[in-house]
Design a protein around this nucleic acid. Sequence first.
DNA 1: GCTTTACTTGGTTATTTTGCAAAGTATCAA
DNA 2: TTGATACTTTGCAAAATAACCAAGTAAAGC
Lengths: 105, 105
Amino acid sequence: MKAGTSKKTVKKSADFRRAAEVFKALSNPNRLLIVDALSEGERCVADLTALVGLDMSTVSAHLAVLRNVGIVSDERRSTQIFYSLRRPCLMNVFCCLDEFHSEGD
Amino acid sequence: MKAGTSKKTVKKSADFRRAAEVFKALSNPNRLLIVDALSEGERCVADLTALVGLDMSTVSAHLAVLRNVGIVSDERRSTQIFYSLRRPCLMNVFCCLDEFHSEGD
DNA sequence: GCTTTACTTGGTTATTTTGCAAAGTATCAA
DNA sequence: TTGATACTTTGCAAAATAACCAAGTAAAGC
């Protein structure tokens, strides 16, 4: 643990705003579907579009949301653009969610 | 690990919808502020209202959102209603988010 | 240069979210 | 039972989101 870092972190308004943005990016089922697909490796937009079954422009917008909060990155190779997950720890979030739901009432 | 459970879980549309609802509940800075406060113990609505600095009706609505996805539970004691976190693992999500941001570029 | 392919951006519409204020409900105390 | 306290619910306006289609851009091939 770094110096100046304590277990009980002091959180500021900006921290909550930033965290909320990440959660908001993950708050749509189609984006989660995309994130899940990317967890198995990079995919181009056409593949993701086929996967989610919406208009490509819509999928492109979803990818922009994920990109803007740093969840995915894109790389153009000739005419295609490949997206991939930037944050391996995102998969932990999914695991935590499984736990969340299986704790049930 | 239970029988019938594999590492590579097959996820259905309903799973993504349910997960998205939890993320949506966490996608607002004021709700995150509330969750953070509750991570230190139960609080009544008046206390949470003072904390977030919005109208009590607004805070009540935020609490309803968190309650509807099972993140918090409420218990009336005389005229006050105390809210508390139902899911300890939610704090793991916060840890994961810290990790998320500190990986950042 | 022109076309095609693969994507993104802009415009529009319907729906959802977030806030406040006012009215409603539950509990307690006088 | 009347009033006060502590919430919740309803009604409403402003802003954000998610979807489509149409138009714009970037790279590759002809």
